[in-house]
Design a protein around this nucleic acid. Structure first.
Lengths: 133, 133
DNA sequence: TTGGACTCTGACATTGGCGTGAGAGTCAAT
DNA sequence: ATTGACTCTCACGCCAATGTCAGAGTCCAA
C-alpha cells in the first residue's frame, strides 16, 4: 500500500510516517516512481512505534528496539531479553522525571503556602501584560 | 553592580541574566556606555526567578508573578492573593504532567512484561547502531 | 488525454531556556 | 597609551516530533 493508506489505517500523519523512515524505524520499498510501498506488517510496526513513543521512548531508542521484536498477531512483542536492560533504563528515566516534577510541585506548594490568604497588606496586582513602572 | 558580579553572586550565567531581561523579568538601569547596572534587590529577584523556574513555571508566567512579590529579608514572597489562581493552575499542570509520565511508565511496564525472560526463542539482537540488514 | 487525487523532496516553523562565538566598544590599572 | 578583563548586541545551534508550504512529478479512472 502507499503512504496515504498506511496513514489512514494507522491514524498517523503522512509527515510522521516519512519522519519515522528518516529515523530508520520503517523501510518501505520504493517504486520506480519513487513512491513508497508498504507491506501489511508495517501497520503493526507503526502501532508498536506509537506505543513506544507514548511510553516516552525517543525514535533513536525505538530504532534499537524494533529489530528485537516479532509479530505476534496484531501486535509486536519484544523477542530478546537483551532489551530488558534498555527498557529498565527507560523506566528509570521516567521515574526520575516524575521525581523531578514532584519536587517542582513541592517548591510551588511552598510558594503557595507563603502567599498570604488576603490579610491587609494585600496588593492589587497589575493586569497580566503591563510591566509599565 | 554590573552583570558579571550579579552572575557570580547568584551563580546564574551572564547569558541567562540577559535572557531574563529580554523576557521582562529584570530591568537593570543602563549606564551611558550601555552597561547594565543592577541593584542589591536584583540578587533576591534572580533567586526568586530560579526558584520559580525550578518549580516548572515558564518565564512568561514568572513575568506576571514577579510584580506581585515583595522582599522579605533574603527572599521574595508573594504579596497578593490574586496570584493564587495562577499558582494553582500551574500546580494542576504539574499534576497532569506527572500523570502523563506515570501513564507512559505503565505502557512501558506492559512492554517489559511482554518480554520473555529468556526461553528458547530468544533472539540475539544486533548491537546498538547497526541497522545494516 | 485530461484532471483530480496522490506522492515526492526540501526546507522552514514551532517550544524554551539557554550555550557559544563574532566583532566591537568600555573600564581601570599600570 | 597600552593592555587585559569586562560588556555590548546580534544571531545561530540545540532537542524532538510534527505541521505546513512550495513546486514538481505520478497514478488512474472516465
Amino acid at each position: 500500500m502507499r503512504i496515504g493508506e498506511l496513514s489512514r489505517r494507522t491514524g498517523v500523519s503522512v509527515r510522521s510516517l516519512r519522519y519515522y523512515e528518516e529515523q530508520g524505524l520503517l523501510s518501505p520499498v520504493r517504486r520506480p516512481s519513487g513512491y513508497r510501498e508498504y507491506g501489511e506488517g508495517d501497520v503493526t510496526t507503526v502501532r508498536a512505534i506509537r506505543l513506544m513513543l507514548a511510553a516516552g521512548l525517543n525514535t533513536a531508542t525505538i530504532a534499537e528496539l524494533l529489530p528485537c521484536m516479532v509479530e505476534d498477531g496484531e501486535l509486536l512483542t519484544p523477542a530478546c531479553s537483551g532489551m530488558l536492560p534498555d527498557l529498565h533504563r527507560e523506566r528509570e528515566r521516567l521515574n526520575d522525571a516524575v521525581a523531578e516534577l514532584l519536587a517542582a510541585r513541592d517548591v510551588l506548594d511552598s510558594i503557595i503556602a507563603a502567599t498570604a490568604p488576603a490579610p491587609d497588606g494585600d496588593l492589587v496586582c497589575p493586569v497580566s501584560p503591563g510591566r509599565s513602572a
